[in-house]
Design a protein around this nucleic acid. Structure first.
Lengths: 198, 198, 198, 198
DNA sequence: GATGAATGAGTGTTCATTCAT
DNA sequence: GATGAATGAACACTCATTCAT
């Protein structure tokens, strides 16, 4: 993001807010790290505050409760994925259907590579509290991939295809399947989607 | 021990063990109910014992720790599913491929209808500890449904198809999607599988 | 022990008592073993009963509570030591003072060799509940070793010499000092006692 | 940190830390009292917290676990003894051997007078975890009391004399012997040591 | 005489959250 | 705005002991 003139201004006008933003960033940063290292079980507010280098009370000044922190991280994640998805969609018409599906699948797989523990925890939280949100994003893309299909039937199909992708990737991550790293895995997922939508 | 005539009177035979068995049943029953009502978070040993009408120590006489209780329920569930799957497979050749796939999908969907919260918790536990076990059972069936396919490619395909089914159903359950009860949902899942395997 | 006619008789007269004696023996045997293997912390009534191969309720038929079991073992131990001490004393006049002191010291050291864990636990219990009982036995011997000394002064001296011996040996055991196995250790203990009593 | 003039007003300086220090002191105070009144068995964390007038969680903010509390008390005790011993040693050459030995013995006896139950528990803990530490301090002094003795023989002798003193005093405390308060007791201990070392 | 089943009071410990400063 | 101190409700789990048979 490019810094716009107003930004400088607003920071000058309220140095407190700048500090606050830094504090929040530190908290989220620490939270993400702990999520990654310790999983959702070792994720305690005290731990997060300590790691963020802020007092526990400070943490509660910005987040009403523990869940809000995880949710904030999940939102970051969601935004990142949403953006990636947006880029894929933007190129959808020129790229063609297969390439688009492949791009989506690849994005999902990559999203779960590296930082696995954190992803697991985040996904678990997302799934538990906002189940299917991630799949929902994909579902929104699906109609554009389907040849002239709308209404109820389309809704079910969107649901199925999106949850199938996320479900398979999710399982592979949770089971720590070596398949995740094979090109074959991607191929099969693409096949699954394309054949289904034909 | 030789079976004596009195043994037929099962109510009177070995009252000690009978009592113990009743206690265990009561604990599992209570545990399942709490799992259903409160989910995995509200599932505490004290709570279970209280609901089962037994002392907390009694509970620990039969289960080494909290997890063992959930696992015991999960095993019951697994056995039920395994048996159902066995029956489907037994009829596979006479029923044909589509009917078999449909039966499997239906079984999965039904397995998650009713007692949803409990199922959720159980599935979560199963997924966490015995990741993919459930999907694994299905995976074992898949090769029989695929036209002449073996080796690595077959393994990936089995993985994908089984996780796709469980993933979609799982999502529907966790998201409490109304689709679960529509015939269309089943149709689409069958379509997903058949088209993929063709 | 040789079986005497009466023994047969009494066993025949009350087979229950014979059984009972065997049960008690089994309990004490198991208790001693557990004390040895697990120390006083791992020493639980349920554990003892199980190891003894009897029901927990049976154990409580013979011992009013947990402590009674440890005490019973301690008594066995005490009896053994008392007897050993008696033999030493019986030979005291012919053996001379130094030899007698040396015999006592050696007995103490040997008492703590082997089966150390059990000894530790037993000694701890003895010390805690019947503190100085062991030292008391020795104290009773001391006057015989002192040249014409009686009354209060003698009592203090008996106390000091007996607790000094037991204290040193006890420390060596608890600290698992390698000194326990050296002849020097015995020599020094003898020296301590003889010089003090001269 | 540079000391500022205000620092002198210790009551006002960093009130947070002052509060914490007061809390810790209250916990240790309560712990010592309970140790004294109830012994090690009645020494529970909840009990201590209640008696200290703090929440149980507060206690755990300062001590990682139960043992740490006892250890903290034990350390206080150790420090006190160490210092006393240091003072005795500092005067050793001018005071002469007998006076030094007598001072040590007196220190030991006094250390165990009053607050006997607490001392018992503390000593027990010290003995169990830091076996012989206390005796070890004395042992270190002994060589200075022995006429030209070094090497292995000296090590054994140090061990014996230090454990003899602590053993005798320990027994007197545990058995709650009335001898503890007699001057004769001290005399005899001094005699024990001096004769042995001559 | 023997027992398995059952138990409740109690244990040490955790953690999200609030309060006074 | 920031914080350290404090906390209580809750947790999983243990064990000496009793009761019904």
């Amino acid at each position: 993001m490019a810094r716009r003139p107003q930004d400088l201004d607003s920071e000058r006008r309220s140095p407190r807010q700048a500090r606050a933003r830094a504090t929040i960033a530190a908290i989220l940063e620490a939270a993400a790290r702990i999520l990654e290292e310790r999983g959702l079980d070792g994720f305690t507010t005290n731990h997060v505050a300590e790691r963020a280098g802020v007092g526990i009370a400070t943490l509660y000044q910005y987040f009403p409760d523990k869940e809000a922190i995880v949710l904030a991280i999940a939102e970051q994640e969601r935004d990142r994925l949403t953006e990636a998805l947006g880029q894929i969609l933007a190129r959808a018409s020129e790229a063609g259907r297969e390439a688009t599906v492949r791009a989506i699948v690849r994005m999902m797989v990559q999203a779960f590579e590296g930082r696995r523990r954190a992803r697991k925890a985040i996904v678990e939280t997302l799934m538990r509290r906002h189940g299917g949100a991630m799949a929902g994003w994909i579902a929104r893309v699906v109609p554009g991939l389907m040849p002239g299909m709308v209404g109820e039937a389309g809704a079910t199909r969107s649901f199925v295809v999106s949850r199938a992708i996320t479900g398979v990737v999710r399982s592979a991550v949770l089971e720590e399947s070596p398949l995740l790293e094979t090109p074959e895995f991607e191929d099969e997922l693409v096949r699954l989607v394309l054949r289904y939508l034909d």
